[in-house]
Structure formats: C-alpha cells, structure tokens
Computed example of a mutant assay.
Amino acid sequence: MLKVFVDAGFRNASGKGAFAFVIFDSAGNQVAGHATCALGTSNELEYQAAIAGLKRAVEIAGGEKVLLQTDSQLVEKQLLGDYKVRKNHLKPLHATLTELVQRSGAKVEWIPRKQNRAHKLVEQALQKTC
C-alpha cells in the first residue's frame, strides 16, 4: 500500500503559504515528494496538497492500494461526509478530491500533525523559497 502524507502551512509575517506531499511504498521507502509555494486559505492549500499527492500516487501505484493521510480534520471529515462543504471556494476542490478518491479507491485517514511526514517539506519550502 502506498502512503501519501499531505500538509500545508503559512508564514505568518509574509502571508505566503506552501503545500506538500510525500509518498512511501509498502516497504517504507520514499518514492515521491514535492513542495510548492501557493496562495490561498489554509483549507484551500490542504485540499491542493491532497489533490496533488493523490494524483501523483495514482500515477505510480500500478494497481497498489493508496492511503491518503492528512492532519486536516476538515478535509478528512468533508471527504467522509461528516461535515458539509459550506464555503463556496472549497466546493470545486472538494469535488475534485472526492472524484479522485472514488476513482482510485483510496482510503482517507486523519493523523496527528506530529505523524505527518509532509510537514517538514512544507516548513523547508516556507523557509527557503516562499
């Protein structure tokens, strides 16, 4: 099973943000990772991280199952249908991610921030390039 960790963050003083994903194979080897500077709300960037990470995981999965792991309870709860998507700016992102999850058969799981292996990439992007 491929594990996809996704995260987003902001640099408070500058208002700049970043999102990242890291993908590990079933042996625990990192097979992909990417961080991008971006504009948007924290929730928008969490969705963008999930979309980018899941798209990349599907490209390399080769039929292998995918587990999408996020520390965003909002994204996880909205994908599971526990929370409604009330903000209009999140609806297209939610629709895109929902379609990707359904098409790929990926599972979605909330994890604590301390366990999110994409967090370090976000921090590095914010410090160096954003």
Rank of each mutant, 00 (worst) to 15 (best):
D71G: 09
K77N: 12
A106F: 00
E64D: 14
E109G: 04
S42I: 15
K77A: 12
Q73S: 13
K107Y: 06
A57L: 03
K114W: 02
Q73W: 10
Q73H: 13
D71K: 08
I60A: 01
A106Q: 00
G63E: 01
L74N: 09
Q115P: 04
K87R: 13
L93H: 07
H89I: 11
R86A: 12
E109T: 11
Q69F: 03
V66C: 01
D82S: 09
N116V: 08
G105D: 01
L93R: 03
E76N: 12
N88F: 04
I51A: 05
Q48H: 13
A50H: 08
V75I: 12
R56I: 04
V75M: 11
G81P: 03
G53N: 09
L79Q: 08
L74Q: 12
Y83R: 04
L93P: 10
Q102R: 14
A57K: 02
Q73K: 15
S42Q: 14
I51D: 05
R86M: 07
Y83C: 05
E76T: 09
T41W: 12
K84S: 13
S104L: 00
K55D: 08
K114R: 14
L67M: 11
V58N: 00
V66W: 00
E109M: 14
A95T: 14
K87I: 06
T70A: 15
T96S: 14
E76S: 12
Q102M: 05
Q73T: 10
H89C: 09
A49V: 03
